[in-house]
Design a protein around this nucleic acid. Structure first.
Length: 284
DNA sequence: CGCAGGCCCTGGTAGC
DNA sequence: TGCTACCAGGGCCTGC
């Protein structure tokens, strides 16, 4: 499940292998992959040939290819999306959704997505920051990220801390995995009311968010020698060292208490019952 | 306006 | 063995 570190790893791979190349052809193999492009798949495919990729940017879990036309191709990986750079001779897999070829005849770019939660769209004039994702807050690695502003906003939210962390309009890039990891480091249960956070407490939590994602990025962003941009941990180079996520019943790495799993927002939350006690009056 | 919950997808796996 | 049920979950949308 790609969160910020995974998307940033993909961005770096794309920046290295696609920047400066001119698009030759675009083929949409599954309309759902471009459902955010209102004008439709044919329009998407027709608009891109001849354009050159000038840069690759990211905000939170979104990334976009900036084009020499000042437009942008926005991409979101969803849960299972991958950007693969593949020689044209490699036969397409079953989940190939969109294929880009380039005029240099080099490796093609394939958007592969099993569960089709991800997708691509064309953003007119969006090269610098697509208006479609202007509502997404800066992530901790964005020059525009202001932790004191987020501290203030977080403490104003009348909701649970975890729900607030997952709100991409407050701080972006945080998903279920890194939210749980950050809360474990901060010794906070996700159902704690965000209004109860002190300013220093909120600062500490946000510091953990930044740290845990920076560490994951350090683990994942190193091996880009191959012409292969992957977002799935399955490929091996994504060696996340997780303290709580997915560790139900295993000992807490701090106190040894078995990690618990709770259902929250129709997904799983992992925490240590001892380090992260449930609040008396839980917030959603 | 702020917040909460439903829905979209499909491969893998557990259970019967 | 073959079926069903459930799980993974980010972001958009709707309704309160």
């Amino acid at each position: 499940m790609p969160e910020l570190p995974e998307v940033e790893t993909v961005r770096r791979g794309l920046a290295r292998w696609v920047t400066g190349r001119q698009i030759d052809t675009v083929e949409v193999l599954h309309p759902r992959a471009v459902r955010r492009h209102v004008a439709g798949a044919a329009d998407f495919a027709a608009a891109l040939p001849g354009r050159t990729v000038t840069d690759v940017h990211r905000r939170g879990k979104y990334l976009w290819l900036a084009l020499d036309s000042d437009d942008a191709v926005i991409g979101h990986l969803g849960m299972s999306g991958q950007m693969l750079l593949t020689d044209a001779s490699v036969p397409p897999g079953p989940h190939l959704r969109v294929r880009f070829t380039f005029t240099d005849g080099g490796p093609e770019l394939r958007f592969v997505d099993q569960r089709t939660f991800g997708g691509l769209s064309l953003s007119p004039g969006g090269a610098l920051l697509p208006p479609e994702i202007a509502h997404i807050a800066p992530d901790p690695f964005d020059p525009g990220y202001d932790p004191e502003f987020v501290v203030t906003a977080l403490r104003k939210r009348r909701t649970g801390v975890k729900r607030a962390l997952l709100d991409q309009t407050l701080i972006s890039g945080v998903g279920n995995i890194y939210a749980d990891e950050s809360l474990w480091r901060a010794k906070l249960h996700g159902a704690r009311a965000s209004t109860e956070l002190t300013r220093p407490g909120a600062r500490r939590l946000l510091g953990h968010v930044t740290d845990v994602m920076a560490e994951a990025l350090g683990h994942g962003g190193t091996s880009f020698d191959a012409l292969y941009v992957n977002v799935n941990g399955e490929s091996g180079y994504f060696d996340r060292s997780l303290a709580v996520y997915g560790r139900e019943g295993l000992p807490c790495k701090r106190c040894g208490t078995p990690i618990r799993r709770e259902s929250f927002m129709n997904r799983s939350s992992y925490s240590c019952p001892r380090c992260q006690p449930r609040p008396r009056r839980p917030s959603p």
